[in-house]
Design a protein around this nucleic acid. Structure first.
Length: 555
RNA sequence: GGCCCAUUGGUCAAUCGGUUAAGACGUGGCCCUCUCAAGGCCAAGUGACGAGUUCGAUUCUCGUAUGGGUCACCA
């Protein structure tokens, strides 16, 4: 079948008269990369249809890390061959969101207007000539042909195949245009008939292709026998064709992509072989799943808010939290490593492909929260303040203004039970919770909060009033913590509260309440909340006037 | 439906034929304690099912079931 006869050449020239370069020319333009032995060349190749998907973050992170770990190259290619689906501005969005997560390509598209590197262009719509050179070579060798079938004709074929329970598609006898003589094709083209270019498959569905997936090991899948479209009517290639020519000429060593590509890998392998290109190593990642009622399914761009990485950014998860979470899913020995090296840079951890689990992991936001608590617990007050400031500037300007008004004060809020603390508080895992957690530190917010929620205790009850009045009379803002607490006990005991928790638990009926109840009233009066950090520290920060004020207001 | 991939507790998972089947999150309990968070200790909870290979199977093979993916001039 592979015969470079005059007729094929004539057909090829008729279809691509403007193409004069050859595959050999391309090989010279894109020479072998000068990299050390064993270096990986990887890529992330999204189509510009919107934001950065959480699964894509997963994919791009691994691609980047694997390349970096081997002193290789990681590049970003934009697969924009479907002009109908393209969304304006997505290249800019994609690259900027990747940047936020620290994923910088060494090569390729780096913003909506810039590309770097010697193996470009890295945007498929700019590579039309390259694909045509390759398609032309295929036609010359009888391995591709023009197809004149209309969409309607294809639809009819497919429906009848489905109806008769025959494997659908354009292959063997159903590949109507595959056996049209070259003379006839030429005549049709010359008469102006519309056509696209199809690959002439030589595979058999009865035979299997074998390839080794770096995660899954040996894979055996039926060979491709479909005469798939390689050049569409708009002159651009389909994914399959673009993939093999780009990854060949960009010298990709490892094609790492989602597992949804497994079924089409035989097509790719046949295509590589037909072009006499070396087949790269394939690595298929499991999909990130989400629970949907009873069952799990692939995280969906349309249905799931978690599918967009911006969801986590909006909520104020630190970038590191998301990254660390992904790393724990990618290699399950990341967590033990992290436990052993709490301060190490996460980039010091080497990802290993063969340790990636081949079944899809559920996206577990509770786990993310836990990891995020740890990440935030490692920050000092300055880092927290800076992060919150940065986040709120974009997402909560009211919070931003309040924090900014008195930075000295703001930093002390975050220093509480954090800087120099033996036990670091771990109740925050995303910045959007800051405001409601620390509402009582800001008079304007606190007032609004009280108006909405009121006090938790009964405002006019005798016991509350007694506690408050009694406490005001002994409160001294200069007390150290021990004095403060012993005074509190004194006061509580005078009113009939038990100051010993163990004793109280034994004989609760002997008291009107415990020291915990007593301090609880103070706490609620000052903060409007039942649960807060250490009330002594809060009072210290708030200062005498505000403390007295709040105690009085609560009466 | 055909084909492909997968299957260890609620979730993420370790084990490269022999273990009381790790660990983390979550859950429950206890301790600590001015509340909460944290921390410490403890507990409950797993090899989908059925065959085969083997002295021995979570591990290897084959079926079944279940879940997911894929079948375009979309990627």
């Amino acid at each position: 079948m592979e015969n470079l006869n005059d007729k094929n050449v004539k057909l090829a020239n008729l279809i691509f008269p403007e193409i004069t370069k050859t595959v050999e020319d391309l090989e010279k333009i894109y020479p072998k990369r000068d990299l050390k032995e064993g270096a990986f060349v990887t890529r992330f190749a999204p189509s510009p249809t919107g934001f950065l998907h959480t699964g894509a973050l997963f994919t791009s992170l691994i691609n980047q890390r694997i390349a970096k770990q081997s002193d290789g190259i990681f590049y970003l290619r934009i697969e924009d061959t479907d002009k109908k689906r393209e969304v304006d501005g997505s290249v800019g969005l994609l690259t900027s969101e990747m940047k936020i997560f620290g994923i910088y390509p060494d090569e390729g598209v780096i913003s909506d207007t810039e590309e770097i590197g010697n193996y470009g262009p890295y945007t498929q719509s700019k590579r039309e000539e390259i694909y045509k050179i390759c398609a032309k070579s295929l036609i010359e060798r009888g391995l591709a042909y023009p197809c004149f079938c209309t969409t309607e004709m294809l639809d009819v074929t497919r429906t009848s195949q489905e109806k008769n329970k025959i494997r659908p598609g354009y292959y063997s006898n159903y590949a109507r245009c595959r056996n049209i003589s070259i003379d006839e094709s030429i005549a049709k083209i010359e008469s102006g008939e519309k056509y696209i270019i199809r690959f002439r498959s030589r595979g058999s569905h009865l035979k299997k292709v074998v390839f080794v997936d770096a995660i899954r090991g040996k894979m055996e899948i039926a060979e491709n026998d479909q005469d798939i479209v390689i050049i569409k009517s708009d002159g651009l290639p389909t994914y399959h064709f673009a993939h093999i020519v780009d990854d060949h000429f960009m010298k990709t060593t490892h094609v790492m992509r989602g597992e949804e590509w497994i079924p089409s890998t035989p097509i790719h392998i046949e295509l590589f072989n037909s072009m006499n290109f070396e087949v790269p190593t394939y690595v298929h990642f499991p999909s990130v799943m989400i629970i949907d009622g009873e069952s799990k399914r692939k995280l969906s761009k349309r249905k799931d808010k978690e599918a967009a990485v911006s969801f986590f950014l909006d909520a104020g998860y630190p970038v590191d939290s998301v990254l660390e979470y992904i790393l724990t899913i990618v290699n399950s020995d990341y967590e033990p490593w992290r436990a052993k090296n709490p301060l190490a840079d996460k980039l010091d951890f080497d990802i290993r492909l063969e340790k990636i689990n081949s079944s899809g992991a559920l996206f577990d936001q509770v786990k993310l929260n836990d990891i995020s608590k740890e990440v935030i617990a490692k920050m000092n007050s300055k880092q927290v303040l800076d992060s919150v400031l940065e986040w709120s500037k974009k997402y909560d300007i009211e919070l931003y203004d309040i924090l900014n008004k008195d930075l000295e004060y703001s930093i002390q809020i975050f220093a509480m039970e954090r800087d120099n603390a033996t036990k670091i508080r771990k109740d925050i895992f995303k910045w959007e919770d800051i405001k409601s957690t620390f509402v009582y530190f800001f008079d304007s917010l606190f007032e609004k909060y009280l108006n909405k929620n009121g006090y938790i205790f009964e405002k006019d009850s005798k016991i509350v009033n007694d506690v408050l009045s009694e406490y005001i009379s002994i409160y001294n803002e200069n007390d150290d913590k021990d004095t403060w607490f012993s005074n509190m006990k004194l006061c509580a005991s005078k009113l009939g509260f038990c100051t010993d928790m163990k004793e109280y638990k034994k004989n609760p009926e002997n008291y009107i309440g415990s020291i915990a109840d007593f301090s609880g009233i103070i706490r609620m009066a000052i903060t409007g909340k039942k649960n807060t950090p250490d009330i002594y520290s809060i009072m210290k920060l708030l200062g005498k006037d505000r403390v007295i004020n709040r105690l009085n207001n609560a009466k």
